[in-house]
C-alpha cells in the first residue's frame, strides 16, 4: 500500500518542515495543558512569550545541532527558561556582540561590511562569535528555516481560527 511505504521513514530523515510542525504541535499541546485561564495582561504576555519560545525551540531542534544558529538559539532559550522576556534580543547578547565584534571584524572587513554585519550579528542567533563567512552561511540557513517557521505557524493559526 502507498501509505505503508511512507510510514517507514523516521522523523529524523523527514523534511525540516515536518519536524518543526511535529515538535511545535507537541509543545503547544503541553502549553495548553498548563494553561491557566486567567485573563490578566501578564498571563497573556507570558503566554505569548512561551508560544514564541516554543516555536523557536522547536525550529532549532528541528534544524538540528549541525547549525550554529540552532545551537545558540537552544542554548539561549534554555538559559532564559523561566524568565519573562518579550524582546528576544536580550541585554547580555548585545554586550557579548559589542565585545567580540570589535575584536574580530576589524582585520576582516572594510567599512561598509562592518555596518551591515553588525546588524546581522544581532539578528542571527550565535552570530556574535562568527566570522563573516560563516555568518553568511548561517544567515542563509536561518532565513530558510524562518520562512518555514512562518509558513507552518500560519497554518496553525489558520487551523485554530477556523
Amino acid at each position: 500500500m502507498f501509505s505503508g511505504k511512507i510510514r517507514k521513514i523516521p522523523l529524523s530523515r523527514r523534511s525540516i518542515r515536518t519536524r518543526f510542525a511535529y515538535k511545535f504541535s507537541k509543545a503547544l499541546k503541553e502549553l495548553n495543558q498548563k494553561r491557566t485561564f486567567s485573563s490578566s495582561l501578564e498571563a497573556y504576555n507570558r503566554r505569548c512569550y512561551m508560544v514564541k519560545m516554543a516555536s523557536y525551540a522547536s525550529l532549532a531542534s528541528a534544524a538540528g545541532s549541525r547549525r550554529t544558529w540552532s545551537r545558540a538559539l537552544l542554548w539561549k532559550i534554555r538559559r532564559n527558561k523561566g524568565l519573562m522576556r518579550t524582546n528576544k534580543s536580550a541585554a547580555p547578547r548585545r554586550r557579548i556582540s559589542s565585545l567580540i565584534s570589535k575584536k574580530e571584524e576589524n582585520p576582516n572587513n572594510n567599512g561598509e561590511d562592518l555596518l551591515g554585519l553588525e546588524g546581522l550579528r544581532k539578528l542571527v542567533p550565535g552570530g556574535e562569535v562568527m566570522d563573516a563567512l560563516s555568518l553568511f552561511d548561517e544567515t542563509a540557513d536561518y532565513i530558510k528555516c524562518l520562512t518555514i517557521q512562518v509558513q507552518i505557524m500560519r497554518k496553525f493559526v489558520h487551523f485554530y481560527s477556523g
Binding site: Y44, R47, C48, V51, K52, S55, V150, M153, R154
Partner: peptide, 10 residues
C-alpha cells in the same frame, strides 16, 4: 511575523 503569529496562537 513569528512574534505576531505566536501572539495569535496565544
Amino acid at each position: 511575523q513569528v512574534e505576531f503569529l505566536s501572539m495569535r496562537l496565544a
